[in-house]
Design a protein around this nucleic acid. Structure first.
Length: 123
DNA sequence: CCACTGACTACTT
DNA sequence: CAAGTAGCCAGTG
């Protein structure tokens, strides 16, 4: 279990009920701007043992990552029970996204040297 | 130690 | 819109 894994876990736990966050934003908050897949891996393998609010994490475009029949329906139900509006289209509006707290100091998340691509807004 | 793997993303056809 | 491509990097075996 690495350092960054712990930060990712903490970032996930910090998402409040009734809001959602994305793999990408969690990665940013944990100091891993390119760590979306690591966030996904952690959710996949540790959500149970670490008691993570896995259902509050969606793709950066607002769609649900889980395929139908593999928890997708449950995730939608849980989100709706918290008050999050999940339209029939399956795309959650940006309005429900929670802005993660910046990572602790010393961590260079967004390096300003990197061009436009790391902070491009939702499509 | 090495080689996959993938609850992702951004870009390009 | 849909489909294909190229990076990403912590787990897992």
């Amino acid at each position: 279990m690495t350092e960054s894994t712990l930060r990712i876990i903490n970032a996930i736990k910090a998402v409040p009920p009734g809001r959602v966050s994305s793999y990408r934003d969690i990665g940013f908050a944990a100091g891993l701007p390119q760590g979306a897949r690591q966030v996904a891996r952690i959710l996949h393998s540790m959500s149970r043992s670490q008691n993570l609010p896995w259902h509050r994490i969606v793709r950066s475009d607002g769609t649900i990552a889980l395929p139908p029949g593999d928890g997708r329906e449950l995730q939608i139900a849980l989100l709706r029970s918290e008050g999050v509006e999940v339209p029939e289209t399956g795309r959650i509006a940006p309005h429900w996204f929670w802005a993660p707290a910046p990572a602790p100091e010393g961590l260079s998340l967004r390096d300003s040297a990197t061009p436009s691509r790391d902070r491009s807004p939702l499509r």
